[in-house]
């Protein structure tokens, strides 16, 4: 929030406009393709599961869609007493 917002009445239409612009830029690029994020999530987890036993409860996947880049954050808890699987 900038200093100017203190003096300006907060209006909602510009927020709506910006949210739509970001959302639609992504949707236009992805409609027709399969869900890239879902595929990445599955494949990343599969690769890790090959080596480490993963508890589904201890996996968090977050996505943040920004105007220019999307970040995918895969957070996997690996316990200290982990059993390394034989490759």
């Amino acid at each position: 929030m900038s200093i100017f917002s203190l003096f300006r009445k907060q209006t909602s239409a510009p927020v709506a406009r910006e949210r739509l612009q970001v959302l639609l830029a992504h949707e236009r690029a992805s409609v027709g393709q399969s869900d890239l994020v879902a595929i990445l999530r599955e494949e990343i987890l599969a690769v890790i599961a090959k080596h480490v036993e993963i508890d589904d409860e201890r996996v968090s996947v977050k996505m943040e869609r920004g105007e220019h880049v999307t970040t995918l954050e895969v957070d996997i808890e690996i316990p200290v007493t982990v059993t390394i699987r034989a490759a």
């Binding site: 009445k9 209006t11 239409a13 510009p14 709506a16 406009r17």
Partner: peptide, 10 residues
């Protein structure tokens, strides 16, 4: 005009 609705141009 009050900024509470998307404008035509938006």
């Amino acid at each position: 005009e009050r900024g509470d609705m998307l404008k035509v141009d938006d």
